[in-house]
């Protein structure tokens, strides 16, 4: 007896979720899975995967779609990258995804910390691939250079929504700036993979989605995720509508027509959902 559409139903394995949560607590780490109240947490924890959230639990931006707390930034912990690497090793991850809160208070936006995390993971898990989901660093090229110098396998930066909804959904971000982040990072490492994602159900039109796909693909972006926006609380940006699985399939085809190497388009697809599969599929493609 729920008003939610049937396709927004997930399994919750308490034992698996607690196990991953305990491990993160042991290492003093945050995950975006928990902070964002991700609906896929039960499934991902059962597969013993999680996405690390570095640079604290408080974000300096107040995006209207996001559940992460906006508040006073915490001191940067120089030991955190090493602890991420140790936790990733304990989880036996073969693909490690690291993201962060946005740190507009730091001169480099936390870019050096990202680079240290990549290096620490490489050292401890030389066989693993590393994906970083970065903020826009206000478009600062030195910050982007610092991250790219650490050579992540996948550089992910989400555009999140269509251009016309930025003011309502991502007021402190700029659509063109996010595109430039993707373009710059691809140009810096043409052999590396770049990735982005956006939400639907916020009121965007199909024509706007098509324009977004063109814009993103023009940056050279390889991987794409498209998922249903789900308001974390009634105080967040309102839901315009639930998008059906059939429409997600249409969006997927629209993206593939534009020659993305890999597209995940489904109601519960999220930035790093089954990220390892995405990388493997993209690399397997001729």
């Amino acid at each position: 007896m729920s008003a939610r559409p049937e396709w927004l139903k997930v399994r919750f394995n308490r034992e698996a979720v607690d196990e991953v949560a305990d491990l993160m607590a042991k290492f003093g780490l945050n995950t975006v899975c928990r902070e964002a109240n991700c609906p896929n947490r039960g499934e991902c924890c059962a597969r013993r995967t999680a996405t690390f959230l570095i640079l604290g639990g408080n974000c300096t931006r107040n995006c209207r779609f996001c559940n992460i707390a906006c508040g006073a930034p915490e001191p940067v912990d120089p030991e955190e990258p090493e602890r991420v690497a140790r936790a990733a090793a304990e989880l036996k991850l073969r693909h490690v995804v690291v993201t962060s809160v946005t740190r507009d208070d730091l001169p480099d936006g936390g870019a050096a910390h990202f680079a240290r995390a990549i290096c620490a993971i490489r050292e401890r898990l030389p066989g693993a691939t590393v994906e970083v989901l970065i903020p826009d660093f206000k478009g600062d090229r030195a910050s982007l250079d610092a991250v790219m110098a650490a050579r992540p396998d996948v550089l992910n930066h989400n555009v999140e929504t269509v251009a016309s909804l930025y003011a309502a959904v991502r007021p402190q971000a700029r659509y063109a700036r996010s595109l430039e982040v993707l373009r710059y990072c691809k140009a810096a490492a043409p052999d590396g993979l770049t990735k982005t994602g956006f939400m639907v159900g916020l009121g965007e039109t199909e024509a706007q989605i098509a324009a977004l796909l063109d814009d993103v693909r023009a940056t050279g972006c390889d991987l794409l995720t498209i998922g249903q926006y789900l308001p974390p609380t009634p105080q967040h940006a309102p839901l315009a509508r639930y998008v059906s699985p059939e429409e997600f399939e249409r969006y997927r085809r629209m993206a593939l027509e534009r020659d993305f190497r890999y597209v995940a388009s489904a109601p519960l697809a999220r930035s790093s959902y089954r990220a390892q599969e995405a990388v493997e599929a993209a690399r397997a493609r001729p």
Binding site: S2, R4, L8, K9, V10, R11, F12, N13, R14, E15, N37, P39, G42, L230, P231, P232, T233, L268
Partner: peptide, 20 residues
């Protein structure tokens, strides 16, 4: 163990909670 036992509506989705 692992079978879905009951459903809980959360802010975002409906969770099928598995038997432990």
């Amino acid at each position: 163990k692992g079978e879905a036992l009951f459903e809980v509506e959360t802010e975002k989705v409906v969770c099928q909670v598995e038997a432990e």
